[in-house]
């Protein structure tokens, strides 16, 4: 555990808390992509099956359980409790366009051809693109609530910090996981446009809106 990894995890945790707080306080999930949240639940479920097979630390187990539980709770809020506020018309990205190719790739490019390993690889690839329905939704409506942009910024920061973590681990621990690094870089690159808008607009007190 190094400082970048810890900050990354905390940023990820913060993103989830911001999202839950936004929905709970405003009693609404307007502007949030249910597709992205379903994909995240799938990511956590397939990645953390190792909860049953290996123990790393109390910290690791606690975080995994929280990520899984919060992702399903988010889906419950969006598709049940606050269903009336869910903007499904703008959430039109097709999940199968991501899940199917990513599933195929996980079968072809993995560290070991074992069920748990393929599922882990699937989750890594899927996480890298799971934000696309959310970004698609923002671009379709042309705007995002400020709280939603804070959520996206925290989520993007998490992956950027993980890249610093991998650089650190490469030099100081001799650790290098090509699959995680490539997917993590792809994931971070997807946020670049958003980061630019966040820094130039939201941090200056303006709402995040895209040019028409």
């Amino acid at each position: 555990m190094n400082v970048f990894r810890l900050l990354g995890d905390m940023s990820h945790l913060l993103a989830i808390l911001i999202l839950l707080l936004k929905m709970w306080k405003t009693r609404s999930c307007a502007g949030i992509s249910g597709k992205t949240q379903i994909l995240f639940a799938l990511v956590f479920t397939t990645r953390y099956l190792d909860l049953f097979s290996s123990f790393i630390s109390i910290y690791n187990t606690t975080m995994k359980l929280f990520f899984i539980a919060s992702s399903y709770f988010t889906i419950f809020l969006m598709y049940s409790k606050f269903k009336a506020t869910y903007d499904s018309n703008h959430d039109s990205f097709r999940m199968e366009f991501l899940v199917v190719p990513v599933g195929g790739l996980a079968f072809l490019v993995n560290h070991e051809f074992l069920p748990l390993e393929i599922l882990w690889t699937f989750s890594i690839y899927l996480e890298s693109v799971a934000i696309l329905p959310q970004l698609f939704m923002v671009s379709k409506t042309g705007e995002a609530e400020t709280i939603t942009s804070h959520y996206l910024f925290a989520l993007g920061s998490y992956r950027l910090l993980y890249i610093f973590n991998w650089v650190y681990r490469y030099y100081f621990d001799g650790f290098f996981d090509l699959i995680a690094v490539v997917a993590g870089c792809v994931q971070t690159i997807l946020y670049c446009d958003f980061f630019y808008l966040y820094i130039t607009k939201v941090l200056k007190g303006k709402k995040l809106s895209l040019p028409a």
């Binding site: 990645r47 790393i56 690791n60 560290h111 993980y162 973590n165 996981d177 699959i179 995680a180």
Partner: peptide
Amino acid sequence: KADSHSHDEL
């Protein structure tokens, strides 16, 4: 080799 991709990250 196993160590190079031990999944200790979240």
